[in-house]
Amino acid sequence: MYENTSQTPVRDLLQSDRVTPATRTALTERLAQPPVTEPQFFTQDEFVRLQRVCDRLIPQPDDERVDLAGPIDERLANGTTNGWRYNDLPNDGEAYRLFLTGIDQAAEANYDRPFDALTDEQQADILLLVQQGEAPGPVWQQLPADRFFEELLAEVVEVFYSHPMAQEKIGYTGMADQTSPPAPLLHKERGVEH
């Protein structure tokens, strides 16, 4: 585990002169972004369900949360993509909607309750079934479950680890890019600096 005396090493760095203006702008804007409360693409119900899904995929403490569902809603509302999709999946927006319907169907089939009414563990179990391509429900005839799960997980993970608060957790400080003269190439284990 990465040890740092500061609880907010990245946020500290952003206040310093060790970050170029372009990088500081990108990261401070992201930090200041308020969480989405009124979805543009999803219905309110769908959006809440997606938030629960994100909570299971990337559990977060209550006091410091990165908004995960919000940026997904924004992307789908803008109609932008990451440049490709599996040929056997429908377009991203439709796939997300089918998925959100499908986990409800699976929850009803296994627990006689909608997804939102399940415990955290039960929700995680449903997601695991989706990941394994074994979730019950008619939607999964239309949507290859394991494929979609991979896409969903990749998107959520990318949103999360792009956020300075998540980067603090993994000890990433590469945004300190103001380097003149060139930064030494730290190679700690041998105590060598190139």
Binding site: M1, L57, I58, P59, L153, V157, Y161, G171, Y172
Partner: peptide, 26 residues
């Protein structure tokens, strides 16, 4: 970091606490 995390998601299919643990060793 994001490239690595994304590849872990696709390649190792990790999520939940398992993902946090693996990424803590980034």
């Amino acid at each position: 970091p994001v490239t690595y995390a994304s590849q872990m998601a696709r390649g190792r299919a990790l999520w939940g606490q398992d993902l946090h643990d693996a990424m803590s060793r980034y």
